[in-house]
Amino acid sequence: MVDVSGAMPGGADGRVLPPQPWEHLTSETTRTVLRIQHHIVRSARRYLDDQGFVELLPPVIGPVTDPGIRGAKQVDVDYYGHRYKLMTSAFVYKQASLLAFDKIVYVAPNVRLEPLETCSTNRHLAEFHQLDIEVAGATREQIMELAEGVVGHVVDAVVSDMGDELAALGRDVTALSSWRSRPFARVPHAEAVRDLVEGGHMQDGGAEIDWAGEEILSIKADGPFFLTDYPKGSRCFLEKEDPDQPGVLRTFDLIMPGGYGEVISGGEREAHYPTLITRMRETGENPSKYGWYLQLSRHGVPSSSGFGLGLQRLTRFVAGLEYVWQAAAFPKVPGVVSP
């Protein structure tokens, strides 16, 4: 007999789960981490403000949300009898927002019911926040430069302004400064796959780098690096296919060193209506539920590039935390019933 009763996973495999809120919120470690996170958000906002970005307040629900999240389930909302979704990411709204402004940023809450196996990665939360950025007319290379700028700026700000906090957490500051004088490396997906396979890790060349593979690459790295050129079929329909390399998407992830893994995912967007609707089918989507968005793209949306930066993940890296839930005031680890 197979047990299909639906019992939730516990912490029996040695993972440390978040304590109760009164214990977590009164812990000096939590307070220090959240102060660092506050400084990260504040520094990023200042940096982007100086570059001419307009911060918009993000939508929370809508008829569609980002479907390109491997294995994760969206949360349905009954919106006056219509099936709406909580944002897994406001990706189509970011693109639409460019009709108002050329450079936009959200500090956006996102909910993804991640597959239960992600509770052992130490870096997945079912509820998290992103710095969501989109720039009209930008190429992937330009948006990667921006991502490099934002990350470098906030890391420098924390190192220069919060030395005591980092010391209290035992964070080795050289892990945050040793790579600052070098540009971030660029590693195409195919090269990363080759590295992993040569090292004995069974990585599917046609899929995203799996979580174990990402950790291996992150541990080996001597600084942050961009993982570029994901294969088609591994990301959502909005990610533009490279016209010079059919089957390759103009995407990138930013991987932090030290085993902390991915903190940014982004790329150049598809804005051409016939290509968009064809790509929707290639990703198994029902175009009819994207009615408003397809209508918008028929009228024309600007070409653009953008990315989402996971704020709890970046905090985890900066503060040197073992678990990403330590960087959330009210953490929700996948599958664990939490307040």
Partner: peptide, 24 residues
């Protein structure tokens, strides 16, 4: 139900996406 639109590329990529999103 709609039958769904398939071309060679749509079928190929839907299978790739299934392998990517549900590796187990």
């Amino acid at each position: 139900s709609s039958p769904g639109t398939y071309t060679e590329e749509i079928l190929r990529q839907q299978i790739h996406l299934m392998r990517n999103n549900f590796p187990r």
